[in-house]
Design a binder for these strands. Structure first.
Lengths: 227, 227
DNA sequence: TCAGAAGTTGACTTTTTGGTCAGCTTTTGG
DNA sequence: CCAAAAGCTGACCAAAAAGTCAACTTCTGA
């Protein structure tokens, strides 16, 4: 899709980098692949399927990628570079209430817009995460630790109740990813055939409500003032 | 394994139903299969692998099961019969505090003891749940609805804050299943190579703490008195 | 004891899959 | 304009997978 005409009709027609054939076809292959990997996992996905889904002959897929592993590895790499983006909200200079609420909203929005990538990652986890390199594992750990410390600080400052930050993060990941990874169960629960925007909004409100209610100190107010 | 001698050396040697050859071999096949399906999904699992893992010749696997689908379907069926067991804790005649705490503990214990089954189910969800029959979907919906009503009643009675029960259940499922389905991420987060019992205990305490803190009314106390 | 039922299995066929390749067409830079 | 580089692909192959089967052994009830 989005086959645009050359923007510069001049003599040289310098094309944008993304318009180059290689970039375009690799993108098509990766897009098709992430969909299939997300559904069927690494072992269950056939190269021929990827070829068909990306509307390229199988041999052409091999022209761009050495092996199936190479495709998978590229996707893992791409995914991990965005792993921490939502976590940016958890910053020491912010108020936990807003920071956590923003994090939940961002993660849920990611689940909504990038359900495929989320499922792809979930599938890799089900496989045992064997495709993650030592470096990539460390990356996840480092980024997590960094934010765990922020939460620990909030607790020390009395801005949060004394709660194990690591398990709290797990709760947040799990609750937000569920709407992508197990969208069918979520939809069944909500009596839908598929999730709608309002479902995500309600999910966000509920998660924020419960998490903040369970984390913020028991002083005066405990949540948003709207009923 | 577990090749036992006949218990009754008498003339008739009436054997227990489970000792019958068919039962034993089917069990071996299903056990091997659920492990493989959990890791590699339906499409990624080879019959030969199942045969090897169950220490039977491939032809013997085909003797007991028509197709791979048949094995998978049997496992789905078996799994769903235990789907609601943890939900039994959510009963109208109980106090929400204990009921929810018990539910979380039970679900987490299931994740710990039956991680394989949990992953198998997660894999089926990633596939889109296409293997679930209409009846099975309805079963999930019905059971859920039943318990949603209990929670709604608690809310009406003022025993719980006004929170969307469906999304609450999703939070509970997600948070507890994560420790089975994404055990590797959980372990990474907790700086472990694999999860230990104490990790599950801490998970339970944290989840119970946060969920109850976020759900119970804001009156006097808000959680367990132990610090 | 013994005939039929149940269980076992190596070897086989067919189908699918990952991967290759030679020769073709298109694009590109000068 | 043109040669080289990049891109394309039908046809092919070897390996692996699914699935079959006939001959065999073991079990069971009468």
């Amino acid at each position: 899709m989005a086959r645009e005409k050359r923007a510069t009709p001049g003599r040289k027609a310098a094309k944008a980098p993304e318009e180059r054939i290689r970039a375009r076809n690799e993108a098509a292959i990766l897009k098709a692949a992430v969909n299939l990997f997300a559904r069927k996992g690494f072992d269950g996905t056939r190269i021929a399927e990827i070829a068909k889904a990306s509307k390229l002959p199988k041999a052409n897929v091999y022209y761009y990628f050495e092996t199936k592993e190479a495709i998978y590895a590229r996707l893992i790499e791409r995914l991990l570079s965005g792993w921490d983006s939502a976590l940016e909200h958890i910053r020491a200079d912010r108020e936990p209430r807003e920071a956590i609420a923003d994090y939940i909203a961002a993660k849920l929005e990611y689940s909504r817009k990038n359900a495929v990538e989320s499922r792809f990652f979930a599938n890799e986890m089900l496989r045992g995460g064997g495709f993650l390199s030592r470096t990539q594992r460390r990356h996840i750990q480092d980024v997590t630790h960094e934010r765990v410390e922020v939460v620990e600080n909030w607790i020390r400052e009395g801005k949060l109740r004394k709660i194990d930050p690591k398990h709290l993060f797990i709760m947040l990941w799990a609750s937000t990813q569920f709407y992508a990874d197990s969208a069918e169960v979520a939809a069944m629960t909500l009596d839908r055939t598929s999730l709608r925007r309002t479902d995500y909004d309600n999910a966000r409100d509920t998660i924020v409500d419960v998490i903040l209610g369970g984390c913020l100190p028991v002083a005066g107010e405990h949540g948003p003032t709207n009923d």
